[in-house]
């Protein structure tokens, strides 16, 4: 009975089905533990957490330079910036938009720097209906979060915000355009 004190002698090894289940469960936990390092070595997706301290003003200056150097278009009043293939791309989360719109090439690796100028935001990359892309990273003020990223599909992808960042969070969106 679980509600009464137990006399001495309860400390004994498990038997039968209970012992078998313990062994199976332990084995499964082993599988769970091994999968992460395995994917780390063989898989193509991981969150390395690479980041550098950065003052919001300083990050903003880098983004403005990136926009000046690579601006190819303007959409909805927001500059569209083509990142140098294999180079650095910059993205700001601020209340309540993702700035600027990025233009990338499929199959090319970029260093995507993401930071916030104010609150915490959630970088959530979403394909158009049916494309099935769904990738999420935290964006914090003071942290230059570097994602080494290779688009493997072409098209237009939305960035939405999935970290609550105050009144206006629900309309915080952005765009990444990937060309073949």
């Amino acid at each position: 009975m679980s509600i009464f004190a137990v006399p001495a002698g309860w400390l004994k090894a498990p038997h039968g089905a209970e012992r078998t289940w313990l062994a199976i469960a332990l084995l499964w936990c082993l599988v769970l533990s091994v999968m992460m390092p395995y994917w780390h070595l063989k898989g193509k997706q991981t969150s390395s957490g690479e980041a550098y301290d950065v003052e919001p003003g300083e990050f903003n200056a880098r983004v403005e330079k990136f926009v000046r150097d690579g601006k190819v278009d303007v959409r909805n009043g927001i500059p569209v910036v083509e990142a140098p293939p294999g180079g650095h791309a910059y993205l700001i989360g601020r209340s309540w938009t993702w700035y600027p719109i990025l233009k990338l090439k499929k199959g090319v690796e970029y260093k995507l720097h993401v930071s916030s100028l104010d609150f915490q935001h959630g970088f959530s990359l979403q394909g158009k209906a049916g494309q099935g892309l769904n990738m999420n990273f935290s964006v914090l003020p003071g942290y230059d979060h570097v994602l080494t990223i290779t688009p493997t599909s072409a098209g237009e992808f939305n960035i939405i915000c999935n970290e609550f960042c105050g009144m206006g969070h629900e309309k915080m969106t952005g765009l990444i355009v990937v060309e073949e």
């Binding site: 209906a129 939305n158 939405i160």
Partner: peptide
């Protein structure tokens, strides 16, 4: 959530957003 719908968010139609996003699936 598997289709990308965020938590803590009242509007997956993004009615007031400058750039439209689409999670209507």
């Amino acid at each position: 959530g598997s289709l990308g719908v965020p938590r803590r968010h009242p509007d997956i139609d993004f009615t007031d957003a400058a750039i439209k996003a689409d999670l209507s699936a």
